[in-house]
């Protein structure tokens, strides 16, 4: 047994770093494959992006990034994503509380529906939302008399981003809230705390990391979103043009330098976000003793 393990490890060119890994075989093989696969599909292509950007002078990169249109696109993408994630945080909290704490007819259906944005392709969501919120659509028609225009305005982008980010808060908080130790709440109540105080002082601190994780996930997803947004946005530069669309437009204008620079910037941002998310998840795990 030990011999096969070693040969596999040698084949992959890696040796188990620690003896404490014990008896389970296949470290070298699976780690080798993992690194190979990761490199081929993710790391090398992404590195290509940085190499391409590095061909530019720092001044050029700076000019591209500080161009009004780039700045506005980034502002729109990050700003609206932040607002959408915040709305999802609040409304997601309501949804998750209703799903976990209350019993009502249609609860299971509501629960299942939360995942639709995960499963519904973004282009489909895009045309569906646009048709719905256009002035001659079901909802757009209702809002028009009040002077509220959703489709082809930044508000439309917000609607699309809320849609695609909706499941994240609910799905990250749900398991934590389900596992929440009821006795703590009961103890607080026995000690005379009001219901609101109990929720604020006892429940909230436990679920807070999960909430923040959900928020960060929804935000990360929204920043990069393209398919659902381009149909409804109106795509007006400096007003309703998101950063991913600007990348596509720069590409279509043969302006590779601009496209790659903006893309690399967004990539750095997503990487940073991921670290934040992972940190939050570890915090959540430490606090609740489970993976969220």
């Amino acid at each position: 047994m030990a011999e096969t393990t070693m040969s596999a490890a040698e084949l992959a060119g890696t040796a188990p770093p620690r003896r404490s890994n014990g008896v389970i075989p296949g470290f070298g093989l699976t780690m080798g494959l993992t690194l190979l696969w990761l490199s081929l599909i993710v790391l090398i292509p992404l590195a290509g992006l940085f190499f391409k950007t590095a061909e530019l002078t720092p001044e050029r990169i700076w000019t591209i990034l500080t161009a009004t249109r780039t700045l506005n696109a980034l502002k729109i993408s990050f700003g609206l994503s932040l607002i959408a994630a915040a709305i999802n945080l609040v409304l997601g909290a309501v949804v998750v509380w209703a799903l976990v704490r209350y019993d009502f007819p249609g609860r299971r259906l509501l629960d299942a529906l939360v995942d639709i944005p995960f499963a519904l392709p973004t282009a489909v969501a895009g045309i569906a939302l646009t048709t719905l919120y256009a002035e001659n659509g079901w909802l757009g028609g209702l809002l028009a008399p009040f002077g509220i225009k959703v489709a082809f305005t930044p508000l439309g982008i917000l609607v699309a981003l809320i849609f695609i980010g909706l499941p994240f808060v609910v799905r990250t908080v749900q398991p934590v809230l389900e596992d929440f130790d009821h006795e703590l709440e009961e103890a607080a109540a026995t000690l005379g705390a009001s219901r609101w105080t109990t929720i604020r002082k006892v429940v909230l601190p436990t679920v807070l990391p999960a909430f923040l994780t959900g928020f960060a996930l929804a935000f990360a997803r929204a920043v990069g979103e393209y398919g659902s947004v381009i149909f409804i946005a109106g795509n007006l530069p400096n007003v309703s043009e998101i950063a991913p669309l600007l990348i596509v437009i720069r590409l279509e204008e043969f302006r590779y330098a601009d496209a790659t620079t903006i893309a690399a910037t967004m990539l750095v941002a997503s990487f940073a976000l991921l670290f934040v998310i992972n940190g939050l998840q570890r915090w959540s795990q430490a606090r609740t003793g489970r993976a969220s």
Partner: peptide
């Protein structure tokens, strides 16, 4: 945990960037 982050990375990369990197290659 760094490796896990790398595996998660495509999740937060904009789909447009994902397409772009293959065009660049």
């Amino acid at each position: 945990s760094f490796l896990i982050t790398l595996i998660d990375l495509p999740f937060s990369v904009s789909p447009v960037v994902a397409g772009l990197v293959f065009v660049l290659l």
